[in-house]
Design a protein around this nucleic acid. Structure first.
Length: 514
RNA sequence: GGCCUCAUCGUCUAGCGGCUAGGACAUCAGGUUCUCAUCCUGGAAACAGGGGUCCGAUUCCCCUUGAGGCUACCA
C-alpha cells in the first residue's frame, strides 16, 4: 500500500450493552496507533445483528469511551460532545447520536441499501449466489456432518441445483433467501498480519459464508469490508478471533477489485484459567471497573500492558496516555494471550491514587462515600468536605480503589465507638496503669490549642511524651480513638477527629476502665 | 472432529545465537516512630518435552505435548 497515505483506523463496537474490557484494549491500540502515526481514529457502530441490540447501549458506549479519553475525530458522537464539529448529522437510528465526517453513515443499519448494491454486484460477477435453503435443512446437515466427524460446511446445494429461472421465480414469489459467498476451490490464500507475520489458508476448508441474511441485513464479513473500503481504512486492528475469517475478507477485497488494508490481529484477553475473557468469571465491562472505583488512567495503563510493552530493557510500569502514544508500536504487540490479573490493576490504581491531590481525590471519592451506610448515618460535620478531605489525607496511601474510601476506617464516622475493654491494654499493663497513661494522653491533648492541632504537632508532642516506651502510650491512645486493632497512627486519627471529639473518645475509654 | 494461532517465574513481561535469564505485580522474610498502610532491603520463583542447525541455543527449523480461538442467517 501507499506509504504516504494518511493512516485511518476504526473501532467498531456492537451495541450489545456495555464495553467489554477486551474491546477497550482493541480500541486503545487503535487509538494509540492512529495517534502515533498522526492518523485518524474513527468510531463506527456495528449493529447488523438486531437480535443482540440493547437499548441505549450506543449512547452509553460512546459515553464510556469518551470518559476514558480515547478521543476520536470522526464517526459517531453524542450531542453534548459536539462543539466545533459543524457538519454533524442526526443519526436516523439513534436519536441522541450525531454522525460527523465525510465517510458516513457510520452506523451500519443505515447503510442497508449500499450493502445490497455491492452484494448484487458480487452475484452478477459470479462471486456470490442466492441460497434458498431452509434453516432446518442447514441445521440437520450440520448436525449430520458433525456426527460423522466431518467439517460442518454448506453443501452448495443452491449453487448447483437452482437454475437462473428458479432463482427469478423464487425472488418473484418473495421467498426468503440469503446470499452466499462463493469460495474458490483448491487455492492457498496467503496474507500478512502485522503482529503474526505470514498466515496461510486453504480455501477448500472455507465455508461459503453468508453475506446477506434473510432479513436483508449484511453479516459482519460483508458490511465490514465495504465500510472499511468506503471509509478509506488503512489498518484493521481487531481481536484474534477474527483471524480464521481473514481469508474470506481477503477474497472479498479481491472480488470487489479493491486494495486490502493492512491487518493486525491482537492476542486475546484471558480469564485466569486461560479461556477467552468472559462474563461468567468476573467483571468484563469497563463500566463495572469504573463503578468499582478504578481511575481511567489506571484502567488504560493496565490494559495497555496486556499484550504490549515498549521492551528494550525498560522497567517503567506507569504510563500516561501520552507516554503510550509516544511509545506504542504494533510490532511490539504480543502473539500470545494475556491473563487479566486484578492484583496488578489494584496496584496500578493505587499508584495513580497516590498521585492525586486531596482535592482531586475528594472529587472522585465523594460519589463513593455517598453510597456507604457509614457515611449516610454520619452526622453533618462528618459529611462535610473539610472532614472528608482530612480522612482522605490519611487514607491516600492506603487506597487501592476509590470504593475503599473510608471503608477500613469507619471509626472516623461513628458517633459512639463500641469495643471491648481489653483492646485498650498494651501488653501486660494493668488497669490502673492503663488509666493513668490515658489520663496523661488526655492532659497532653488538652494542652494543645485548636490552632496547634496539626498532624505534625500532635506527632511531635506525643512522641516526646512517649519517650522510649512508645507502645505504652500510643497503643492505648490509638485504641481509645479508633476502637479497632488496625488503623492509622494516633496522631493522624486525632488530627482528623479534632480536639473535642478526640478528648471525648479518650474520656470514654477512661470511664470504661472503672 | 477439522482449520488457525500461540508457548520465559503463579501473573504481566525483558530477551531478538554466547546473560549468574532482567524487571513489575503477587508471595515470603526482615527493617522503619504502637497496630495498619506507605516506604526500604532481601529471598523463593520460569525458558513444556524431544530432535535437529550451529563451535554454541531461551533465541533458528521440525516433531510431540499443552493451551486457546474459529468452525451461526453473532460480532
Amino acid at each position: 500500500m501507499d506509504d504516504n497515505k494518511k493512516v485511518r483506523v476504526r473501532f467498531a463496537p456492537s451495541p450489545t450493552g456495555y464495553v467489554h474490557i477486551g474491546s477497550l484494549r482493541t480500541a486503545l491500540y487503535c487509538y494509540l496507533f492512529a495517534k502515533k502515526t498522526g492518523g485518524d481514529f474513527i468510531l463506527k457502530i456495528e449493529d447488523t445483528d438486531q437480535k443482540r441490540y440493547v437499548e441505549g447501549s450506543v449512547e452509553s458506549l460512546i459515553k464510556s469511551l469518551n470518559w476514558l479519553g480515547l478521543n476520536w475525530n470522526e464517526g459517531v458522537f453524542l450531542d453534548e460532545m459536539i462543539f466545533e464539529k459543524s457538519n454533524g448529522i442526526k443519526s436516523k437510528t439513534y436519536p441522541a447520536v450525531l454522525e460527523v465526517g465525510d465517510f458516513g453513515p457510520y452506523v451500519q443499519s443505515e447503510k442497508l441499501e449500499i450493502y445490497k448494491k455491492y452484494v448484487d454486484q458480487l452475484v452478477k460477477d459470479g462471486h456470490a449466489y442466492y441460497c434458498f435453503c431452509e434453516p432446518e435443512r442447514l441445521e440437520k446437515m450440520r448436525n449430520d456432518l458433525i456426527a460423522e466427524k466431518k467439517a460442518p460446511m454448506y453443501d452448495r446445494y443452491c449453487l448447483h441445483n437452482v437454475s437462473e429461472e428458479n432463482i427469478n421465480k423464487n425472488l418473484k414469489d418473495n421467498c426468503r433467501y440469503t446470499i452466499r459467498m462463493k469460495i474458490p476451490q483448491g487455492e492457498i490464500i496467503e496474507a500478512k498480519d502485522l503482529v503474526r507475520g505470514k498466515v496461510k489458508f486453504n480455501t477448500n476448508l472455507i465455508d461459503d459464508q453468508i453475506l446477506l441474511k434473510s432479513d436483508g441485513f449484511p453479516t459482519y464479513h460483508l458490511a465490514n469490508m465495504i465500510d472499511d473500503h468506503e471509509m478509506g481504512i488503512t489498518h484493521v486492528i481487531r481481536g484474534e478471533e477474527w483471524l480464521p475469517s481473514l481469508p474470506k475478507h481477503i477474497l472479498l477485497y479481491r472480488y470487489f477489485g479493491w486494495q486490502a488494508p493492512e491487518f493486525a490481529h491482537l492476542p486475546l484477553l484471558l480469564n485466569s484459567d486461560k479461556t477467552k475473557l468472559s462474563k461468567r468469571q468476573g467483571d468484563v465491562a469497563v463500566e463495572d471497573y469504573i463503578k468499582k472505583g478504578y481511575l481511567k488512567e489506571a484502567i488504560i495503563n493496565f490494559v495497555a500492558l496486556l499484550g504490549w510493552n515498549p521492551g528494550s530493557g525498560e522497567t517503567q510500569e506507569i504510563f500516561s496516555l501520552s507516554d503510550l502514544v509516544q511509545k506504542f508500536e504494533l510490532k511490539k504487540v504480543h502473539k500470545a494471550g494475556a491473563v487479566f490479573d486484578l492484583k496488578k490493576l489494584d496496584w496500578i490504581n493505587a499508584e495513580y491514587i497516590k498521585k492525586l491531590s486531596i482535592d482531586e481525590l475528594y472529587e472522585k471519592a465523594l460519589p463513593f462515600f455517598k453510597q456507604k451506610e457509614f457515611f449516610i448515618q454520619a452526622n453533618k460535620e462528618k459529611q462535610a468536605p473539610e472532614f472528608l478531605k482530612k480522612v482522605l489525607t490519611v487514607e491516600l496511601d492506603r487506597l487501592s480503589k476509590l470504593s475503599d474510601a473510608g471503608e477500613n476506617n469507619q471509626f472516623f464516622f461513628a458517633d459512639d465507638l463500641s469495643y471491648e475493654k481489653k483492646l485498650l491494654r498494651w501488653k501486660e499493663m494493668n488497669n490502673a496503669d492503663l488509666k493513668k497513661i490515658l489520663e496523661k494522653s488526655k492532659e497532653i491533648l488538652e494542652n494543645i490549642s485548636a490552632e496547634n492541632w496539626s498532624k505534625e504537632n500532635l506527632e511531635k508532642i506525643l512522641m516526646e511524651a512517649a519517650g522510649d516506651r512508645r507502645g505504652e502510650l500510643l497503643w492505648p491512645l490509638r485504641a481509645s480513638l479508633t476502637g479497632v486493632q488496625k488503623s492509622p497512627s494516633p496522631f493522624e486519627v486525632a488530627w482528623v477527629l479534632g480536639k473535642p471529639e478526640s478528648l471525648k473518645r479518650i474520656k470514654k475509654a477512661i470511664d470504661l476502665l472503672d
